[in-house]
Design a protein around this nucleic acid. Structure first.
Lengths: 209, 209
DNA sequence: GTCTATAGAATGATAGAC
DNA sequence: GTCTATCATTCTATAGAC
């Protein structure tokens, strides 16, 4: 499990990147309490003390990991373009969320762990940024319904469905791989997954007739 | 956080039930590594040593918790009646899964944690029982498609969507409550959630025209 | 900046009185 | 069956040599 030590003259930026990358993996697998600084240090190929040189406490390191995940989340949030057609806005958003699940499964798992644990760290984000973002999208979806562009649907639960289905491919990656004969999804299987999810949801609200 | 001690003459069954109940809560919140025997003992209102009297190790206690969750999962699996119409089979299965998310959120969270961690304990279930169950349902869904009872859809991803959306209401309970102004979903809100999920998925595969 | 060594607290598990 | 006391280990975090 222990990786080779990094060269000693790595720059600060390189060390930070390596630590944060492996911290995300360990936090994803064991949650905040279950993860240990030793495990992160071993994965990063550094002495444990070096972690404390860059991050004073385990909590500070965890906060930094969460911060970076939130940035990715914001990027996906932006892809829900409120000025586009329903079909464009939703299919782009779903695709973007699926791409994130594939590219950053550990980030998604850390987020899932954090929410399962009652969101002790990200509670502020949920109450402010996420809540406001959700409200704006609910209004847009309700406008689409009023304009008869999509069928009547509870916008909130539509959003939950999109979050749940797309994040499932990251969070339950192990189950999906197991049910795929132990093989990670191939490019075409990811494409198929994205199309399947997009298809059912769009047809489910009256689009793509 | 510490609960009052139980009466000393509690029967073996009562003690087992109390321990397993609180163990599920703690394992749900912190995962296997993050949960501590002390935290479970405090929640159950027992000295830590009593836990080791009933369960030799933390792993043995965890296995028992997982075993009970699997029983509930089997119960839901049975509700997918392969001899019913697509509309009946799927809407009943979704409703059952939503009821389980409401009645056993901690069990669902333990399962989620376990899968996120790579399913070290339940790997056997995934490869045998779950895999076989999935295969039978995929065949039924493909038959429905061949008989033109539902639109063409990848059965595997349809199942993943159902699992993801229904379990989301348990696993991401905290996020959903936060976005509901901090209030747990009421009876009518659960009903609405179930109807919304069922509606989008069934319409998404060409049912309920 | 890097690393060894270690302090001080918490953890899983057990011994043994009751 | 119940509970206190405790052991061995592991954890976060720091001190201090290089």
């Amino acid at each position: 499990m222990e990786a080779a030590r990094k060269p000693r003259n790595a720059t600060r930026e390189e060390n930070l990147a390596v630590i944060l990358h492996h911290a995300e993996k360990i936090f994803a697998e064991f949650g905040f309490k279950g993860a240990t600084m030793q495990a992160i240090a071993d994965a990063a190929g550094l002495p444990k003390a070096n972690l404390h040189y860059y991050f004073p406490t385990k909590l500070a390191l965890y906060r930094e990991v969460i911060e970076r995940i939130f940035t990715i989340w914001l990027e996906a949030a932006d892809s829900f373009d409120t000025s586009a057609t329903p079909e464009e806005a939703l299919s782009r958003y779903i695709r973007k969320k699926m791409e994130i699940s594939r590219a950053h499964p550990c980030g998604s798992k850390v987020w899932a762990n954090e929410v399962i644990q009652g969101a002790p760290i990200i509670q502020d984000y949920l109450q402010t940024t996420l809540n406001e973002w959700t409200d704006t999208r609910i209004k847009v979806i309700n406008r689409w319904i009023a304009e008869e562009k999509i069928d009547t649907v509870d916008p909130r639960h539509l959003l939950y469905m999109i979050w749940a289905t797309t994040q499932h491919y990251a969070d339950f990656q192990h189950q999906i791989v197991t049910l795929n004969s132990g093989n990670p999804l191939s490019d075409s299987q990811w494409e198929n997954a994205t199309d399947s999810v997009t298809g059912v949801i769009l047809r489910g609200i009256g689009l793509k007739p």
